[in-house]
């Protein structure tokens, strides 16, 4: 029982780290980015290639995955995404689905369509008992790393100049521009960081999330649930949403394997119908 809770929290934390970048894209630029999962997948494959082919230690591969996904994100944002900010949502959807299809096919071409596993170091495998609760070492690591990331994110957002600029831009883009904040640059940096975090999450969670070319499509709905249910005005909203989703999904798969997916999608629809702005928002009139 508690083990399920524990696994659910690990899963939820992972979902949060991957999708927090998406919350910014959506909240700041009002951009529907369905390709966010592709960056997570690239990060995961980057770690996979480094660890399994070149023998890089697992921990060293994580920052590389972050940088790799962030670089690709930065390039994609400056070269492609930038053309779509003022377009209709339909065009953004088409464009990003196109990107997803292309990355999936490319990964399939270069690395094959089978599911891949990163060789974890032996000290991360197995589980130990903690007052009768079975705790997987690998999942414990995920929780620790993600908790660290959440704290750092909260500090950056709340206590740095960049963070206050970002919050200002999310709250009201026009006024922020009027105050002389370079919203485009803030956005480009945040977008890259968001992609990097997605890549890090993809690398960290390769074991749980199953790394294969159709990863972005399979998890697209999960990332979207996190941001649309959690709202985009803070990071607490998406955080709570992802923890709930993680626990719900793991528990659903464990207790009612036949109806797990069904329940989650139904709950999502109900929440969206009742609170289109998200569960944890202050009810802005944007």
């Amino acid at each position: 029982m508690l083990t399920i809770l524990f696994d659910g929290i690990a899963y939820g934390m992972l979902l949060f780290v991957i999708s927090c970048g998406l919350a910014v894209t959506l909240g700041l630029m009002n951009f529907v980015n369905l390709a966010h999962g592709a960056f997570a997948m690239l990060g995961g494959y980057c770690a996979y290639v480094l660890v399994n082919f070149y023998g890089v230690p697992f921990f060293a591969s994580l920052p590389v995955a972050f940088l790799f996904a962030a670089m690709i994100g930065l390039v994609a944002e400056r070269s492609l995404y930038v053309h779509f900010y003022n377009r209709s949502h339909l065009e953004q959807v088409l464009f990003t689905i196109g990107l997803v299809f292309m990355t999936s096919a490319l990964v399939d071409y270069f690395l094959g369509s089978q599911q891949r596993f990163i060789n974890l170091p032996s000290y991360l495998q197995g589980r130990f008992d903690f007052f009768g609760v079975g705790i997987g070492k690998y999942r414990l690591l995920i929780i620790l790393v993600c908790a660290l990331i959440v704290i750092v994110l909260q500090l950056i957002l709340g206590h740095t100049r960049f963070g206050s600029r970002l919050r200002a831009a999310v709250d009201d883009q026009r006024v922020a521009r009027g105050l002389g904040i370079n919203v485009n640059r803030v956005f480009a940096l945040t977008f890259a960081a968001g992609c990097g975090l997605a890549g890090l999450g993809g690398a960290l969670g390769a074991e749980i999330l199953s790394l294969e070319p159709h990863f972005p499509l399979k998890f697209m709905i999960y990332f979207l649930i996190v941001v649309s249910v959690g709202g985009t005005s803070s990071i607490t909203g998406p955080f709570l949403a992802s923890i709930l989703l993680g626990i719900g999904d793991v528990a659903g798969k464990y207790y009612a394997p036949r109806f797990g997916g069904f329940v989650i999608y139904t709950i999502m629809i109900v929440v969206l119908v009742l609170r289109p702005q998200g569960l944890f928002t202050r009810g802005t009139s944007k």
Binding site: L80, L94, F95, I97, G98, L99, V100, F101, M102, T103, S104, A105, L106, D108, Y109
Partner: peptide, 10 residues
């Protein structure tokens, strides 16, 4: 084929 669908979409 998937790659070309994606390309066409973009």
């Amino acid at each position: 084929w998937e790659f070309w669908i994606g390309f066409a979409l973009v």
